[in-house]
Design a protein around this nucleic acid. Sequence first.
DNA 1: TGTTAGCACTCCTGACAAACGAGTGCTAAA
DNA 2: TTTAGCACTCGTTTGTCAGGAGTGCTAACA
Lengths: 343, 343
Amino acid sequence: MLTDRQRMILSAIIDNYIQSAEPVGSRTISKREGVGFSSATIRNEMADLEELGYLEQPHTSAGRVPSTKGYRFYVDNLIQPRNISEKDLFNIKQVFADRISKMEQAIESTASILSQVTNYTSIVLGPEMFEHRLKHIQIVPLSESQAVAIIVTHTGRVENKLLDLPVGVHPGEIEKLVNILNAKLVDVPLWQLRQRIYQEIAGEMRRHVEQYEEMLHMLENSFMTEEADRVFLRGATKIMNQPEFRDVDKVKDIMELFEQNDQLIRLLDSPAEGLQVRIGQENGLDAIKECSIVTTPYYIGGKAIGVVGILGPTRMEYDKVISVLDYLARGLSTMLTNQFDKK
Amino acid sequence: MLTDRQRMILSAIIDNYIQSAEPVGSRTISKREGVGFSSATIRNEMADLEELGYLEQPHTSAGRVPSTKGYRFYVDNLIQPRNISEKDLFNIKQVFADRISKMEQAIESTASILSQVTNYTSIVLGPEMFEHRLKHIQIVPLSESQAVAIIVTHTGRVENKLLDLPVGVHPGEIEKLVNILNAKLVDVPLWQLRQRIYQEIAGEMRRHVEQYEEMLHMLENSFMTEEADRVFLRGATKIMNQPEFRDVDKVKDIMELFEQNDQLIRLLDSPAEGLQVRIGQENGLDAIKECSIVTTPYYIGGKAIGVVGILGPTRMEYDKVISVLDYLARGLSTMLTNQFDKK
DNA sequence: TGTTAGCACTCCTGACAAACGAGTGCTAAA
DNA sequence: TTTAGCACTCGTTTGTCAGGAGTGCTAACA
């Protein structure tokens, strides 16, 4: 659909704009190395590209700026993967070199290095709690009527939840309950817990534990975990380095978005597979209509369990971000698989 | 030192400036209700107040703006406590009406309501982990070489830490250790744990537990907890509503400060007692040299365990903030004392 | 037929001046 | 001691103008 020359020019314009943040004129492109055409020729092509919707003109006598469609085409067809710089590579490898034993720590470090290397905001989504497998459960009474349920997963994650104890329950009963649970439910993924309890444990409990109905009810609660702390956000202020975000109102909208974990989860947790780039309004959120988001899932043993992502201006260094993101997601996947995949 | 009239005028100027964010002229004050003097008189007084250092003039033909010294005097001498509005009072009471059983939740809610009611950023410092008393300790092995130590406190807080197990330790030994600890150390404040272990437990351990030296060493680690998650920050973006923070560079510095929990802790964790106001440069941090911080401690059973604070522009509604902060800190103290004070 | 030089045109930007007005300090009179 | 009056200051707004970056179009060239 686009001629080779148009692709070349579009690519040059976007490269230039990403670098300068200023509308790009025909002369600038004409003078670029490897472009053997006069500014007039470029001008004609630019007019065509604008007509086709790949470029926009802020005003008559300004240069051109890529449109969403332009970026889309650039990302889908024109980008070539960029090698990660020695320095960045070194820093990234550093993260994976440390022996990290808790999954959360690994994810957190990933988020940090990602933001540090790209100079954009990183958002990383940890695995849904439900995917973890039970390692140990414990119920610690705090008072007559309350207790904390503690769930340790095979990933080293510790989740806790406050419970209301059934009236008049005896501590011994709780202990019995916990013993049964630990004996029967180790290595069961959390999402199966409820089901397994009713199928396999209920019978046994009825025999051994008083007030087992109430206890069961209480337990269900403790398996409902917060989604909120799955999100790791790093470098939130980085967007303020961008010249197109010198406006406090824009920044405010974005920072307010960052305060809402549920929104961030929605933003990353897309059904699609593989590396994804969402440009400008494609995100659907008004606050980030001038931002792009690049995401890619990471895996344990072939199963996608979370998402790493970068949020930056639409005028983002897509080639670098994509390379780094891809590399990091692979590294993280390998590491987590080695550490946590069921043997 | 200042005449009554000067105090009145200073107060009027600051009130006005807080409300309008614009330099205040003599005419404006002269026209205020209850001020029976002409603008010329006010002008003379203003010149005096400027000479004394309470006011500043952005430029010759502008009105006056309070200096740090001016605010200081205002806060220390001129403010009268303002009644909290019905609506705010209702909202605040709502928070304490909910039965909140985890201390952290209570503190978090306090931070939220504080920011919501004042429209400034709230920063709340939870109790040092060391102040909590041990309710239960548990060590859950994750693998041959690693385990998670879990500490539950009487406040319902659950802290966990990854441990490296001594080589070749037997699970039974760990169990023995945990049993001894739970038998001996319940209700001991965390800061005493180390000491008590060496004094009281070491002997018993030597008798019953193999590799007790290594185990002890490992344990010490688990009593070192993160300070970072003591801080609750709410309404970070509120500062961007202020006209004097329409500048992205200022905002960026502040938001970057907000990302550093250790700095926030340092900011709140002052040795002084009671309600404190630090104005502008008094905070010592460049990022918030145009901000003020109002803090006050809260208590359990008469002992200060944390700090609630508000960060806003120097041009802050001190009277309202002070009233609300005081009220909330009292409420929180009462609530926590009822809930968690050792009987 | 594709390319390019040339040129008129558009429109943003920055500089400068003028008008405006908010506020001041000072003086003199009440 | 207070205040009316007034000249003065200085930041802000408005308007004008020149400069320049960039465009689209046309005509000539290879």
